[in-house]
């Protein structure tokens, strides 16, 4: 067996298969980003201040991405994370002046969890594919955000997430802590193993009696919570919450997760991969801005990157029919 694996590693396909799901691809992408933008704009891109900007932006992607990583490993998808982030951010910003920071944060997280719970319950009990359920939530949550804010923006007062702890933005620390938490859940607890099993084979997971309905709902609540936290971080980082907060965030987050090496086919992947993917995508966005690409070109390039990431990550052997 060992010799067979080694032999297959010598072929191009073998190399490709071994790279898939490893951290090599996202690290290479990151290195490529650094090399390109470092060459084009060495002083501005490769400065300590800019690295902090990239890391801060990556932290938001990572925080939301950790939840989405669980969803994708379970074989589903959550397209609603950007809208759920907006809902959590704008409501927290609205209530913070009156209610105080801690209740505001809890309300924001609670809304995120609630949106995730709604996603999970509809997914499980109405038996609708997750991409459709969360596509519906994408517009529903965004609509509620507009409705509750009356289309207004709110200056964020008293949300303590943004501050710095020593030289570090707290956002990075929150992301690091959350990464550890989600890593433990995914890799060291039965729940994490069941998430992988669900993504590996739902049929087998059902036969061995895993509590799949509860598990699926839990996964989407995790994703909603992570998206909610991401929205709070985004709002406090920008100093204002607008109802279009986190617009198309889902695209960046999905790209970060997939580029990180968590294929959409389920079972395989990890939150640590998502960290690297998030940094790579943030470096890309940041570099494109610094080099002077307009937002339309940025969108085109990101679209192409997503396709490339999926080309590398997708396990076609597991799909059979692609439609």
């Amino acid at each position: 067996m060992a010799t067979r694996l080694r032999a297959s590693a010598l072929t191009a396909r073998g190399v490709f298969l071994r790279l898939r799901g490893s951290v090599v691809v996202p690290l290479l992408s990151l290195a490529l980003c650094l090399a390109i933008f470092g060459t084009l704009a060495p002083t501005r891109f490769l400065s300590a201040a800019n690295f902090q900007v990239v890391l801060t932006q990556a932290s938001v992607l990572a925080i939301v991405g950790f939840g989405l990583t669980l969803v994708i490993i379970s074989g589903s998808i959550d397209l609603s994370v950007g809208s759920v982030a907006a809902l959590a951010g704008i409501v927290a910003a609205q209530v913070a002046p009156g209610a105080g920071p801690v209740p505001a944060l809890l309300i924001g997280l609670g809304l995120g969890a609630l949106a995730g719970l709604a996603n999970g319950l509809v997914f499980v009990y109405l038996r609708i594919p997750s991409f459709l359920v969360t596509l519906a939530m994408l517009t529903t949550a965004r609509g509620i955000a507009y409705l509750l804010s009356d289309g207004e923006s709110f200056v964020v007062h008293g949300l303590p997430i943004l501050g710095n702890l020593g030289a570090y933005p707290t956002v990075v620390l929150i992301a690091a802590a959350l990464c550890l938490l989600f890593w433990l859940i995914l890799n060291k607890t039965p729940t994490g193993l069941y998430i992988r099993s669900l993504g590996g084979s739902e049929h087998v997971a059902r036969l061995v009696g895993l509590p799949l309905d509860r598990l699926k709902v839990t996964i989407f609540v995790f994703s909603g919570l992570a998206a909610g936290l991401g929205g709070l971080v985004l709002a406090s980082r920008q100093g204002a919450a607008t109802p279009n907060l986190g617009a198309s965030l889902e695209l960046d987050v999905i790209t970060a997760v997939v580029l990180g090496g968590t294929p959409l086919t389920g079972c395989v992947g990890n939150v640590t991969n998502t960290v690297i993917g998030a940094v790579a995508i943030s470096a890309l966005s940041n570099g494109l801005i610094i080099v002077g690409f307009t937002s339309d070109v940025q969108m085109i390039i990101k679209g192409i990157v997503l396709v490339l990431a999926i080309v590398v990550a997708l396990e076609r052997s597991k799909i059979g029919v692609i439609k």
């Binding site: 193993l193 099993s197 590996g200 087998v204 395989v268």
Partner: peptide, 10 residues
């Protein structure tokens, strides 16, 4: 009814 992407022990 085994899951290919999990190891023997799992």
């Amino acid at each position: 009814a085994v899951i290919g992407q999990l190891n023997v022990t799992r």
